[in-house]
């Protein structure tokens, strides 16, 4: 969906000729509230599902294929990024049947390096943009940041919302920024647009009601994906927050017929955690979301544990950290 289509859909949903702060507010605040205790209890309940043998093996491979393997450090170098790309393409050199990851996620000045390293693999390059991670910059800077990533060939753009504007109640501003970024993600001609992933930074929104509203606001403005966190703020992704976002995309599809992806990012480190998220995807949003096109894990260390567990499934014994490459 292009930026302009998203805007006209938003006008239709809000039943206004132009979205105003008050029309967006009354729509967002008309969403059912979230009961914190009940929401957390549901997430805890889903975490008790016991995933064994064949379903575990299937889930581990699916989780690997959903990873946005990420490095977002000041110390990132072309060498580091190339190493990460090699690992993403063939995560376990001892077992070529291991699926590749979904994407490599980098700062936008590393997009070209990653693109060259991933050429021919089918793995996407995702770039963080819009003054990641704080989002505290002028709109001009944010859009320039995004254009850079798009021009460098990023397949996906991970933008951050202006949490300050959201918390100040300026929903219109957040909406406009997402919509404008979406427009910059468009590429002329037949070249596919960059997919827009919208980072809510739920650790700064704090309440579940805010998470729900921010999710709907991002979808209204044209997000292709809603993503929990930058990974730079604690808490990052949690089960209850992701649960609310999965409910949001489920209900959004019922309203509009179109699917939006979900990406928890940060803090998911073990295979057990990843399987719990997949259970939640299946039981809350539905099996249609069990696909790298619609669900991603933003993670770096998770891959290592998934590979260890995968080796365990194949060989029947645990190997050890030295049998999995560090990057």
């Amino acid at each position: 969906m292009s930026g302009s289509v998203a805007k006209s859909q938003a006008r239709e949903i809000l039943e206004v000729t132009s979205p105003t702060n008050s029309s967006i507010r009354s729509w967002l605040h008309g969403l059912p509230g979230v009961d914190q205790v009940g929401c957390e209890a549901r997430a805890t309940g889903l975490a008790t599902r016991s995933i064994k043998t064949s379903s575990k093996a299937w889930g581990i491979d699916l989780a690997i294929s959903m990873i946005d393997l990420t490095t977002l450090e000041g110390a990132d170098t072309p060498g580091k990024v190339r190493g990460l790309c090699a690992k993403g393409a063939a995560p376990d050199p001892s077992d070529p049947s291991t699926p590749p990851v979904a994407a490599i996620c980098v700062y936008n000045d590393m997009v070209e390096v990653a693109r060259a390293a991933l050429h021919g693999t089918g793995i996407h390059v995702a770039a963080v943009a819009t003054a990641f991670p704080s989002g505290r910059a002028s709109m001009t800077v944010k859009l320039a940041d995004t254009s850079d990533a798009v021009a460098a060939g990023a397949d996906e753009v991970d933008m951050v919302i202006d949490r300050g504007a959201f918390l100040a109640g300026d929903y219109r501003k957040v909406f406009d920024q997402i919509a404008a970024t979406k427009e910059v993600c468009a590429r002329p001609g037949d070249r596919p647009d960059a997919h827009l992933k919208v980072i809510l930074e739920t650790g700064e929104l704090v309440t579940y009601d805010n998470v729900r509203r921010a999710s709907w606001l991002a979808m209204l403005a044209g997000a292709d994906f809603i993503k929990t966190s930058t990974g730079k703020i604690a808490p990052a992704a949690t089960m209850p927050v992701t649960l609310i976002m999965l409910q949001a995309v489920r209900d959004w599809r019922e309203l509009t017929g179109s699917m939006v992806g979900v990406k928890p990012a940060g803090g998911i480190r073990t295979s057990k955690d990843a399987l719990r998220y997949l259970v939640m995807v299946s039981e809350i949003a539905g099996d249609d979301w069990l696909d790298p096109q619609w669900f991603r894990f933003g993670a770096s260390s998770l891959l290592g544990d998934l590979l260890l567990q995968r080796q365990k499934q194949r060989l029947g014994v645990y190997s050890g950290a030295d049998y999995v490459t560090i990057d």
């Binding site: 016991s50 379903s55 299946s282 099996d287």
Partner: peptide, 10 residues
């Protein structure tokens, strides 16, 4: 038939 079949976990 769902995509994510849970194997028996007795």
């Amino acid at each position: 038939m769902s995509k994510f079949e849970y194997a028996p976990a007795p």
